[in-house]
Design a protein around this nucleic acid. Structure first.
Lengths: 350, 350
DNA sequence: TTGAAAGCGATACCAA
DNA sequence: TTGGTATCGCTTTCAA
């Protein structure tokens, strides 16, 4: 009864039936025109009428209805990372999404913070994506992968360092990072190497392989490796610096450039000379490493390109039957700078 | 004909009809049991039979079918940011998603890199989300918002500094940041203030209001404000430092802590004393600012909590008719450290 | 307490 | 060249 002025907010959302009615054709014809179905020939006049009707109504197809009917969603689901990703990952993800869109996929990130792996997998499966691409480890377990496959997901691809049963893997082997760092420090004559392992949850997936890499690098050299837990705050760094003399280390690989900066500052504040008394090495080659004094030696990563990964997705979706493939797609190399230089004191500040 | 051994990969995805068949009941009963419909009483025996059948088949409901039938998706869509977000935003987003899930929403991020605003809005609308929450500005335009509303989106909420027509706004007014910084620098006796404006695209939305805030702060004080374009790389910073003497500035507000670190290093390398000759101020209160020498003064932001935003979403979805609300939800305050201290030289390095 | 059946929106086969 | 219609998986009203 009461006429609501609501700026027409109550107007129902137009469907293809509305378009058909306005254009004076059937819904089938609307579908043909709007999807450019080549198997059927429609007169130019009708095409135009349909298009105009769709425009006038502001018609937008309903993805759920379409995928229900067609049986496939062309949706690629990426479990969103709960930890802030660095510029490296960010660039990779952007590339990846862009490449997937060229293959006509819809890319969607689904955050599952606070969900158990099983709950998360269930939630993802409800969306019936055609592919799931995520970090392995706690996020994407073997059980979760099985569940996804049962609910019609054609391609499950993990990016983690460890391949997971049942999924294709784009193995970004972070041991390479540790190997590089370890080899570089050995070469510089360091013998007692500390390795920072962040206390922050969710990072074990990267930190453990990096630690293992350092261990592998020093294997048989007589050098020793000492894991050092560190939280990303000043107190933790200060406490570690306090213990430093007792540890008797002459080098430290600090997980990444940010932890390296944190620890290096704490060590310098305790009067420990870098690199004279202790070499410090980071990873990820962030800009900040070049801004520090001494300049921070680091490990640079070449990650897989998003394009490559998108091609893998497309291939696996097309042929879901194949055996899980495993691709190694990470190269690492040491970038020596001042913080690991042998036999000299840090340059004085200007 | 040909029996395919494919590890049962070809097995069709179970539907509620399969569950019904296995449990020996109708699909209606399955729906009642699995959704815990309270209006209908089902005997305990059947409930158990249905649950067991569902478990055995690994049945997972089809979200698209459900939302098609029910007419609403309970999906909240967040346009994903193409630029890597800092720890501040990351924490906020996590909180927000968590809170939304408590309201039984499904949160999905949709990246639209390389899509025009109109194309992006169309792509979002196809998913028929119940709400869209995004940064305003180039991402979410007035036209896009209208399109979304027409396709049934109940709540469109922008987070940007500027409210956009037709959307509710949780205005995070970044002018506050500039105001704080400007006021702090004035109070410290600085008169010629440079303001770094990042050249990186996508940041104007924040950098322009921050600049405007500084301008507002110095209004009438006789102090001057000089915008300084800067890219996030060493060359750009070195070039700016080169021009520094000619600029004759005695303070600079560097957009955020990272740009501040970049510029401060370049200035120090040119032999310019911080804060003696020039005060440097950052924003976002990152850990790295405390690790620099001199320690970096900064502006700390209190962003809206995710809980608050989730409540706004829920409220607007429940009552979509209301006038667009505008909430101001950002407070900022200066955190003075060494890099803006008056009348003294930087402390010597140990 | 349970089942039959309508229908959400879009697509594609078969007829006309 | 175009239209009628069955169908995808699920919810929900109405009957039994």
């Amino acid at each position: 009864m009461s006429q609501i002025p609501h700026t027409s907010a109550e107007r129902p959302v137009p469907t293809s039936a509305d378009v058909a009615r306005l254009a004076g054709v059937s819904r089938a014809t609307v579908s043909y025109v709007l999807n450019g179905t080549s198997a059927v020939r429609i007169s130019e006049a009708t095409r135009i009428r349909v298009r105009e009707a769709a425009d006038e109504l502001g018609y937008i197809p309903h993805a759920a209805a379409r995928s229900l009917r067609s049986g496939s969603s062309r949706m690629v689901l990426l479990p969103a990372s709960p930890v802030p990703v660095g510029p490296l990952y960010s660039r990779f993800f952007n590339e990846f999404q862009w490449a997937l869109r060229r293959f006509d996929y819809t890319v969607v990130q689904y955050g599952s913070l606070g969900l158990s792996p099983d709950e998360a997998a269930r939630a993802w499966a409800e969306l019936r994506p055609v592919a799931v691409v995520g970090l392995g480890g706690p996020q994407l377990t073997a059980a979760g992968i099985q569940l996804l496959r049962r609910s019609g997901v054609k391609a499950v691809i993990t990016l983690g360092p460890e391949p997971v049963a049942g999924a294709h893997a784009l193995a970004m082997d972070h041991r390479q990072v540790g190997l590089c760092a370890g080899a570089h420090l050995l070469e510089r004559g360091r013998r007692r190497i500390g390795v920072v392992v962040p206390r922050e949850p969710g990072l074990e997936m990267f930190s453990q392989p990096r630690l293992a890499g350092v261990r592998a690098a020093v294997e048989g050299s007589g050098a020793t490796v000492e894991p050092l837990a560190l939280s990303y705050d000043e107190e933790s760094a200060a406490a570690l610096a306090e213990r430093w003399p007792a540890l008797g280390l002459d080098a430290v690989f600090a997980y990444n450039d940010e932890y390296a900066m944190l620890l290096m500052r704490a060590l310098q504040d305790r009067g420990i000379d870098i690199p004279g008394e202790c070499a410090v090495m980071g990873a990820d080659d962030l800009l900040l490493g070049r801004l520090l004094r001494p300049r921070l030696s680091t490990v640079q990563l070449d990650m897989a390109t998003g394009q490559q990964l998108a091609e893998l997705v497309e291939r696996v979706v097309r042929d879901p039957g194949g055996e899980p493939e495993r691709h190694d797609m990470m190269a690492a190399r040491a970038i020596p700078r001042e913080s690991t230089q042998p036999g000299r004191r840090a340059p004085a500040h200007t």
